[in-house]
């Protein structure tokens, strides 16, 4: 049960059931789509950029609790961040959920640390990272869609 609660923390379940910033963003300057074909997770991230600043961010999508809550939490932390700050958070988040070489202190990630348990579930890493990959694609103005495959 401890592993279970580690993965499905209350914050994650709360964001899954009541996703924040879940809407199409009027006046979005950039957007990107992400798909996880294996699970059917699907996400669209909208950005309203003001120069290098993320003035506003939102998402729409459907999928599992991990992917949808990761998207919701991501939007709450990225609003008001610069492109460089968002990129740095992407790297840290990615390191944390993949359990990569450069161990990240979850404290550095603030409320995103609730996804720390994902690294114990290799098949679910893609779920957690899909919104972040999608956000980065939008940030970098890539056309088309992102896939985790």
């Amino acid at each position: 049960m401890s592993d279970l609660r580690e993965l499905y923390q209350q914050v994650i379940l709360d964001h899954y059931k009541r996703p924040r910033n879940f809407k199409k963003l009027d006046g979005a300057t950039r957007q990107a789509e992400g798909n996880n074909p294996l699970c059917g997770d699907q996400i669209t991230v909208y950005l309203h950029m003001d120069g290098d600043l993320i003035r506003d961010i939102s998402f729409e999508g459907a999928g599992c609790a991990i992917s949808q809550s990761a998207a919701s939490l991501m939007t709450t932390v990225l609003k008001g961040k610069t492109k460089a700050e968002a990129g740095a958070l992407f790297e840290k988040f990615h390191e944390m959920v993949t359990g990569g070489e450069n161990a990240v202190d979850p404290m550095e990630l603030g409320k995103l640390a609730v996804f720390c348990g994902v690294k114990e579930f290799p098949v679910r890493v893609k779920c957690a990272s899909l919104p972040w990959h999608t956000m980065r694609a939008a940030l970098e103005g890539q056309n088309g869609s992102v896939s985790t495959e």
């Binding site: 993965l7 699970c39 599992c64």
Partner: peptide, 8 residues
Amino acid sequence: HAHDVGTI
């Protein structure tokens, strides 16, 4: 979602 069902 089915994947959450599967994991639990």
